[in-house]
Amino acid sequence: MSRSETPSWERHLDRWAEAAARQLARGLSRRSLLGRLGATLAGAAALPLLPVSRVSAASSDPAPAAPEGLDGPEGDPSSCQYWRHCAIDGFLCSCCGGSHTACPPGTVMSPVTWIGTCRNPADGRQYVISYNDCCGKHLCGRCLCNRNEGDRPAYLPPKSNDINWCASAPSTVYHCSTAIVLGVATES
C-alpha cells in the first residue's frame, strides 16, 4: 500500500509519536537518565539502612557528651550546678536512668570511692560527699559534669577524681557518678 493510500489519522499519529520521541531524546540524555535512576536506587537502598547505621555507630563509639543538664539551679539534683556536685568529674547518674544517690539499672555501685566536702548554700555548712561511681555498662555519655573543687592530682589518689573508682567493683567499666551525703563536717 502506497503512502498516499495511508489514512490521514494514522499519518497524524505517526508524526505525533515521532515528535514526542525526538523531544524526549533531546531533553533526556543517557547520562542524566542513569544519574537519576542511580540516585533513586541508592536512596531507596540507603533509607532502611540509616537507623541500623546509627545503632551500630552508637554501640561501637563512646557517645559524645551532651550539653543537657549542665545548667540549672544549685538545688536541682539533676543539674551539674547542684551543690553536692562541687567536686564531681563524670556523667551524672540522674541523667543516665538513676539518681544522684542511686545507680541506673544494670550497673553496680563501686564500694571504693573518693570523698570530699561541699558547701550547702541553704545553710552554709560543709557536707561530706561520697562520689561513688556506678559500674558495669559503657560510658553513659549524658550530662558530663566536671567541677573539681577540692580535686587533687592523681599522685594524691584519695583526693583525685580522675581515677576510675570502678577498679574495685565487679566490673571495671565506668558508667556514671553519684553524690551521696555522708554527714555534715563540724569542728571538734
Binding site: 553536692r84 571504693v112 570511692t113 573518693w114 570523698i115 570530699g116 566536702t117 550547702n120 541553704a122 545553710d123 555548712r125 557536707y127 561530706v128 561520697s130 584519695p158 551525703v181 555522708l182 554527714g183 555534715v184 563536717a185 563540724t186 569542728e187 571538734s188
Partner: peptide, 22 residues
C-alpha cells in the same frame, strides 16, 4: 538531706575524708 545529715568531727572526720574512700 541537711535535716538527716549526721554531724562528723575530729579524728572520725579525718578517717571519713582521708581513709574511708578505700
Amino acid at each position: 538531706g541537711p535535716a538527716a545529715a549526721e554531724a562528723i568531727s575530729g579524728p572520725r572526720l579525718d578517717y571519713v575524708l582521708h581513709c574511708m574512700g578505700c
